[in-house]
């Protein structure tokens, strides 16, 4: 009875996953391995997509940099937040989430108006008689856009796991001889490790596949795998099969990265079991 009712309550989600995850995924595989012109089974699409391997590497590289920067900014912030009073915590969390209330495109456009050659910063510089700086259409701008947009996704899981670290755990560590450095390395870091993994996943995955950020802030100098996929589906070179192959390639890369991250998690557990 209980078993049946729990199955029943999962039904809407099962339908959802079926229609919006499983079937589209199968379609991606189908289009990847079929020829656009003839509809026959082929490896041609995948082989073509592989030519853009440098683009894929560039995407991963920038996403890794953005993820690392997010982690470096978010980790101390999340720890400090979790040690504040409940009232301050709510306020700080609101400030972290506030940008998310605005549209993603708008947020990214806002950076264009700031960094543009005739943007706020350059106008300010020229009003002081200083030379203009090339702030947009480069990799730095793309990384900035990624960090800005995905930072809350890093802070939230870290913060939520750190609030679960009881004050008495930290006091126990101090009591047993930990100075502040040891408290972080021996207690907070290992206990917050699952939060780090979640944060990395939630930042890295959207960053590696972005096309809005690279499109708006990277210009033609910073063509990423997301842009490539978008072009195949929405651009002039409309090619469903080729786009599907590129998507599949990206999926495999993400899948492998996640596998590597999660193996860290397992190692950590095994270490502590010895």
């Amino acid at each position: 009875m209980n078993k049946n009712s729990s199955k029943f309550s999962a039904f809407p989600y099962v339908l959802w996953v079926l229609f919006f995850t499983v079937i589209p995924f199968l379609l991606v595989i189908y289009f990847t391995f079929t020829s656009k012109s003839t509809g026959n089974l082929t490896m041609e699409n995948l082989a073509n997509a592989s030519k853009y391997f440098p683009v894929l590497i560039r995407s991963v590289y920038l996403a890794v940099i953005a993820t690392v920067i997010c982690l470096v900014i978010a980790y101390p912030l999340a720890f400090t937040m979790s040690r504040c009073s409940k009232r301050t915590q709510r306020l700080l969390l609101l400030m972290v989430m506030l940008p998310m209330w605005m549209n993603f495109l708008l947020r990214t456009y806002a950076w264009v108006t700031i960094l543009d050659n005739n943007g706020i910063i350059n106008n300010f510089l020229s009003s002081l008689g200083l030379p203009k700086l090339q702030l947009i259409n480069n990799r730095g701008a793309v990384v900035l856009g990624m960090v800005y947009n995905y930072l809350p996704f890093m802070i939230t899981p870290l913060y939520s796991i750190m609030t679960k670290i009881d004050k008495s755990i930290i006091e126990a560590a101090q009591d047993l001889g930990c100075n502040s450095t040891n408290v972080i390395t021996k207690i907070v870091l290992p206990l917050s490790f699952p939060g780090i993994l979640t944060g990395i996943t939630m930042t890295f995955v959207p960053a590696v596949s972005t096309f809005v950020i690279s499109g708006l802030l990277g210009g033609s100098n910073c063509f990423l795998i997301g842009d490539l996929i978008q072009q195949q589906f929405l651009g002039n070179e409309y090619n469903l099969n080729y786009g599907a192959a590129t998507s599949l390639l990206l999926m495999v890369v993400v899948f492998i990265s996640m596998g590597i991250f999660n193996s860290f998690d397992n190692d950590e557990m095994e270490d502590s079991m010895v």
Binding site: D166, S168, I169, E171, A172, A173, Q174, D175, L176, G177, C178, N179, I187, P190, L191, F193, E268, S272, M273
Partner: peptide, 24 residues
């Protein structure tokens, strides 16, 4: 500071380190 004192504490809610086993 606490880590330099020759006293140790048993806490109300035990405050054990969940990431370590009993031995550690």
């Amino acid at each position: 500071p606490p880590y330099k004192r020759q006293v140790n504490t048993v806490f109300q809610k035990y405050a054990l380190f969940q990431h370590l086993n009993v031995y550690e």
